[in-house]
């Protein structure tokens, strides 16, 4: 993908800087409000990634890479999966079946709440990492 950081899209740059915090905020909302309305880890991850993709498109990949390095992305996508599977491992250690969140707290409903929170977070982290990696991968070929 061709990116034109040096061209003077001053308006776009300023607007982008204004918009990105709101996009990130919306991502957080979707991540943690998924219990009550539409949304969840996957959608939140995509929204988070879109903020960085927007940054990359407007400021150029070099700038974005300074904010979020490929090494961090690698760690993110692995950690998300580990968090999800690790939640399963913890439920097993606490005496339940794989991914049986009931055992995570004294009260099954609380356990479910914590379990869903953890796995959605895992999904969100992995998806954010992978989606930005996909963008880096396709954008950094030239």
């Amino acid at each position: 993908m061709k990116l034109y950081p040096r061209q003077r899209h001053r308006v776009l740059q300023v607007v982008t800087k204004l918009v990105i915090p709101f996009v990130l905020m919306f991502g957080l909302y979707v991540q943690f409000h998924g219990d009550y309305g539409p949304g969840g880890g996957f959608q939140a991850g995509v929204i988070f990634a879109s903020a960085f993709i927007l940054h990359g498109l407007i400021f150029g990949l070099q700038q974005t890479r300074r904010v979020l390095s490929p090494g961090v992305l690698r760690v993110m996508m692995s950690l998300g999966v580990l968090l999800y599977a690790g939640t399963g491992a913890v439920t097993m250690l606490m005496g339940g079946n794989l991914l049986d969140y009931d055992v995570l707290a004294h009260d099954p409903l609380h356990g479910q709440h914590w379990g869903i929170f953890a796995v959605e977070l895992g999904v969100g982290i992995t998806v954010t990492g992978v989606m930005i990696s996909l963008f880096y991968g396709f954008a950094s070929k030239r």
């Binding site: 690698r74 996508m77 999966v81 580990l82 599977a85 491992a89 097993m92 794989l98």
Partner: peptide, 19 residues
């Protein structure tokens, strides 16, 4: 818990390799 371990160990090893 053996059936779960059958899948879980290799599954968790994959991201570990990337780390």
């Amino acid at each position: 818990q053996l059936p779960a371990l059958q899948i879980l160990i290799t599954m968790m090893a994959a991201p570990l390799c990337v780390l």
